[in-house]
Design a protein around this nucleic acid. Structure first.
Lengths: 203, 203
DNA sequence: GTCTATAAATCGATAGAC
DNA sequence: GTCTATCGATTTATAGAC
């Protein structure tokens, strides 16, 4: 049953208010204590609700984290098709999904807002303890590459550089390159990071 | 202003005060109007001195820009040896100089300060209109690569990603890699951007 | 001193009552 | 929609064996 549109003045304790209270509490906690440092119980407590409610509204802790980040898309959903098909051509498939999201004008503003927040206090810790283990590593595991904890950060280094040059600094000619040229330019780099020869100990 | 009113050993209008006044005026102008938008005359005027004095203290506009950036080193100086020897191995030579500077603990704080200022208002414009033409392109020209205006930004994209992951986010294992491993990992990428096959029109 | 085993506490997540 | 109860897994702390 969906609520009738146009209804205002919800009573206290209704779903929208509770959901928002949880979300704000989560944002504050993630920003202050990082991903690992925030507990569902603490978020629930700060929002004045029970811990089970957090799961009821947001599912897992990972889902709550993604909701708190205000990502315009769920990377796990849009990337899912690119993760099938094995390691061959994985870099190109990844890049095409990446470009379809970042080149979408509607997505750019919220995404750029996220990028800027990385340099805020706690943003780095959030990236390291939250984004990496719940976004980056699962991608590597889905691709079944070896040493994902070593190779995915390398991929991240070039992707971050691409984000900075193409979307933040808008450095030419990268900023104006067609999607095909971006793929032709960067896919070989990413493919090598995913599956090429690298100095990895104990391999 | 850190100088107390009155005497400091030098009379008012002496070289140290004038130099500093020019430098602060230049910083304000570069930050507000970008590299191309600031003129030596305007900097001099805001500092209350003659334009010729700016050249007397700082040499060229490029030198003034570098001084205003408060770079702990002059990239043109430290990179000079790496630019000799032709294109073979240029990526590795570049990376070794890069690491010798960025891995120096004394350099990191001012360099990281610069990185953070990039996302401030005007910082992006400063990077695009200042850093690129007077730092990045001259490096490419010294290396005598073809299409430096196309290839150097590609190099920049991976170097920026390296800076972000190794020094800003401190993402493992990149943050703890030895210099040799950094070179072995990233030099092939940079070498391809400098001299490898790329989708460049009219080549 | 180092390692291992086990106990205690905490957390994420689910099921079901109201 | 909200909460109680509880499971299973992970982490932390402690104790004992070598």
């Amino acid at each position: 049953m969906s609520a009738p549109a146009g209804r205002r003045g919800r009573r206290p304790g209704s779903s929208a208010d509770t959901r928002l209270a949880i979300l704000e509490s989560a944002r504050a906690s993630f920003a202050e204590r990082g991903y690992a440092g925030t507990t569902i119980r603490a978020v629930a407590g700060a929002a004045g609700v029970d811990a089970a409610l957090v799961h009821h509204y947001f599912g897992s802790k990972d889902d709550l984290f993604l909701a708190a980040l205000a990502l315009p898309v769920d990377p796990r959903v849009v990337l899912a098709p690119a993760l099938e098909g094995g390691i061959d051509g994985a870099a190109e498939r990844f890049l095409r999904v990446f470009l379809s999201v970042w080149d979408d004008p509607e997505m750019q503003l919220p995404l750029l807002g996220l990028v800027r927040s990385v340099l805020d206090p706690g943003g780095v810790e959030l990236l390291r303890s939250g984004f990496v283990p719940i976004i980056l590593l699962p991608i590597g595991q889905a691709l079944r590459i070896d040493h994902p904890e070593h190779r995915m950060p390398l991929l991240a280094s070039q992707v971050i550089g691409l984000i900075m040059t193409r979307y933040v600094i808008r450095l030419e000619p990268i900023a104006s390159m067609t999607a095909d040229d971006v793929v032709a330019t960067f896919a070989p780099t990413l493919q090598r990071y995913l599956a090429g020869d690298l100095p990895i100990e104990g391999d």
